[in-house]
Deep mutational scan, measured.
Amino acid sequence: RRRVRAILPYTKVPDTDEISFLKGDMFIVHNELEDGWMWVTNLRTDEQGLIVEDLVEEVG
């Protein structure tokens, strides 16, 4: 499975499927959606939700 790491922190918009995260958080990518969004699991918090790919980098 594809893994990505947050390069910046992010605070979710209330009442959306987004998740908040810290710089350095690792995610497993489940689905890549339109307009650069990804459905992921945050490995630190075990939370699932949407993040935008501009805020993460690939992990080898």
Rank of each mutant, 00 (worst) to 15 (best):
R1W: 14
R1Q: 15
R2S: 08
R2Q: 08
V4E: 01
R5H: 05
A6H: 00
I7A: 05
I7L: 11
L8H: 14
Y10C: 05
T11Y: 08
T11M: 11
T11E: 12
T11G: 05
K12M: 06
V13L: 11
V13Y: 11
V13W: 09
P14Q: 10
P14A: 10
P14G: 08
P14N: 09
D15W: 09
D15T: 07
D15Y: 12
T16Q: 03
T16A: 03
D17S: 14
I19M: 06
I19F: 02
S20I: 01
L22E: 13
L22A: 10
L22Y: 08
L22D: 10
L22T: 08
K23Q: 12
G24I: 03
G24A: 04
D25K: 00
M26I: 13
M26Q: 09
F27I: 03
I28V: 12
I28D: 15
I28W: 10
V29A: 02
V29I: 08
H30Q: 09
H30C: 15
N31H: 08
N31V: 13
N31L: 15
E32Q: 13
E32M: 14
E34C: 15
D35H: 13
G36V: 03
W37C: 10
M38L: 13
M38E: 01
W39I: 06
V40C: 07
V40K: 00
V40Q: 00
T41F: 06
N42P: 01
R44I: 04
R44M: 08
R44S: 07
T45L: 03
D46R: 15
E47V: 07
E47D: 11
E47C: 13
E47A: 07
E47K: 07
E47Q: 11
Q48A: 08
Q48Y: 08
Q48C: 15
G49W: 01
G49Q: 00
G49F: 02
G49R: 00
V52M: 10
V52S: 13
E53Q: 15
E53N: 13
E53C: 15
E53G: 12
D54T: 14
L55D: 06
L55K: 12
V56T: 10
V56D: 01
V56A: 04
V56L: 05
E57M: 09
E58K: 07
G60W: 12
G60M: 14
